[in-house]
Design a protein around this nucleic acid. Structure first.
Lengths: 124, 124
DNA sequence: ACTTGACCTGGAGTGCACTCCAGGTTCTAG
DNA sequence: CTAGAACCTGGAGTGCACTCCAGGTCAAGT
């Protein structure tokens, strides 16, 4: 199964422009082209885009995604390095989650304060 | 207790430039000035900066922080609206945490795959 | 043959959140 | 009195991650 760029965009949740942009900057290998010179994405391409999207969602900067992508293109000998990148990134993400949870606690506190104040207002 | 801008920067974790920037765009009320015309931050100012930082950390865009800040400056009548902003934002943050956790699961999976592959490599 | 729509390229433009700079003023120590 | 550090202002510059545009090509339907 192959996909035109519009279909790839829809399935990946990225825009057409972003797909071409990712290709330009070396985040994805140039996909195959059809007889008319148009990009033709495979399921593998889409799987990679999906994973890239997860890295992006978790805040990995593009230059690090590119480093990972370049290692992947260079093949088997880079697996240990690639794994290390993911392990380090996972640590970052877990820290980020903890940070967000601290902030949620602060929001809860503040929201509680408003509850009290609005309560007083109502009973006054 | 009052603080010169450098001290406020250190305590808030924001840069001096960012403090002035936040003032310019209406995120913080212009602090008092000392006899020489320099900014003089109070503990209350710092508490507000700390809360702003939590909003920023959780990804609230500046224009929404500004909306909240402007409501706060307008006083008591805006409390219900301010609370609503925080409640909505908390929902966003909780969704974001869930999203990050999904991504961590994907990272765990991928890291596990590398473990297996590197294992095979070692035993081959 | 012709229109329409999806696609192509290289390059310019955008929005966000800062960050830096030049040129000037003011307090602080020696 | 003077050197230096810390501060001031208005405005320009930066980095990131896209996003848009002009001008052109290609394939399919009428």
């Amino acid at each position: 199964m192959t996909y035109a760029i519009a279909q790839a965009a829809e399935r990946s949740g990225l825009s057409i422009d972003t797909l071409r942009y990712y290709e330009r900057i070396g985040l994805v290998e140039p996909p195959a082209r059809d007889s008319g010179g148009r990009r033709s994405y495979t399921d593998e391409d889409l799987a990679w885009l999906e994973f890239l999207t997860k890295l992006r969602t978790t805040g990995m900067p593009i230059r690090m995604m590119r480093e990972y992508a370049q290692l992947r293109m260079r093949g088997l000998g880079t697996r240990a390095r690639r794994q290390q990148i993911l392990v380090d990134h996972r640590t970052d993400v877990l820290n980020r989650i903890a940070e967000l949870q601290t902030c949620v606690a602060a929001l809860n506190y503040k929201i509680g304060m408003y509850d009290e104040q609005l309560q007083e207002e109502a009973t006054a």
